[in-house]
């Protein structure tokens, strides 16, 4: 299984590159780099975690959605279904490849800023934060792809996701909304969880890990595992069969 999974992951990464997703992610990293270069120190503290959060959440959903859209338009899922690979391997390969790919994009943004600005980053915690946030949202992107009819519907779904979950999280981060109620409600927002984990990566080992940090860590980790075992994997066959023209 490991060998086949490795072949599938390599194939997914190769396709992400061939279908220009890698170029897009590099371009996005450069654009963010340019934007953040001109932001002053105080705002950088707000914006850099936001940018990394957007990359690990919305972009992760969009990349995997695009890859699955291409699969649909080229009917390649049909031929994957008649190979010895299992659905578990197919879903896992998408999850691993897209997470690795997205982490590469996030790493680019971080590298740019480490060289340009004097940033204090706990690399281990940042790695954990981006890994967990990206993996969860990639999985969410896979599940959302099950419902997308075409490229437009994928973009519409991402916009809905952005406005219902992304905007409140951003508003809370910059202080537009505040208070205990929002703090509690947003604990169940995966984007907010990603934001909290990423902010943790900018603090040293000495920072106080409050309950929100651990809740977010558990929420995305356990939520991701549950999403994988109870929805993404069991529903994959029905999705793939539907794409193959039945």
């Amino acid at each position: 299984m490991v060998n086949r999974l490795w072949v599938l992951v390599k194939g997914e990464l190769q396709r992400l590159n061939k279908y220009n997703m890698t170029s897009v992610s590099v371009l996005v990293a450069i654009i963010w780099g340019i934007v953040l270069f001109f932001v002053n120190g105080e705002w950088l503290g707000y914006l850099l975690p936001l940018v990394l959060m957007m990359d690990a959440t919305l972009m992760a959903i969009m990349y995997v959605g695009s890859v699955m859209f291409f699969e649909k338009s080229e009917s390649t899922i049909s031929t994957m279904l008649v190979t010895p690979v299992s659905n578990k391997e197919l879903v896992l390969s998408k999850l691993i490849a897209n997470t690795v790919h997205n982490m590469f994009a996030s790493a680019l943004i971080i590298i740019v800023f480490v060289f340009i600005r004097d940033l204090s980053i706990n690399y281990f915690l940042m790695f954990v934060a981006i890994f967990i946030a990206t993996a969860f949202h990639t999985l969410l992107g896979i599940v959302m792809a099950y419902f997308q009819k075409d490229f437009t519907s994928m973009l519409v779904n991402i916009m809905i996701f952005m406005f219902t979950l992304g905007v409140p999280s951003i508003f809370y981060s910059v202080g537009i909304i505040s208070g205990d109620v929002w703090e509690f409600v947003l604990l169940f927002n995966p984007i907010q969880s990603a934001q909290i984990l990423i902010e943790g990566g900018f603090k040293g080992w000495g920072f106080e890990y409050d309950y929100k940090y651990f809740f977010s860590l558990g929420y995305l980790t356990i939520g991701g595992i549950l999403l994988y075992y109870f929805y993404a994997l069991p529903k994959f066959q029905a999705y793939a069969v539907k794409q193959s023209g039945v």
């Binding site: 061939k18 080229e74 049909s78």
Partner: peptide
């Protein structure tokens, strides 16, 4: 081995 009626390849490869 299964040969489908429609093309089933990655077009950018």
């Amino acid at each position: 081995g299964v040969s489908f009626e429609m093309p089933i390849h990655f077009s950018k490869m």
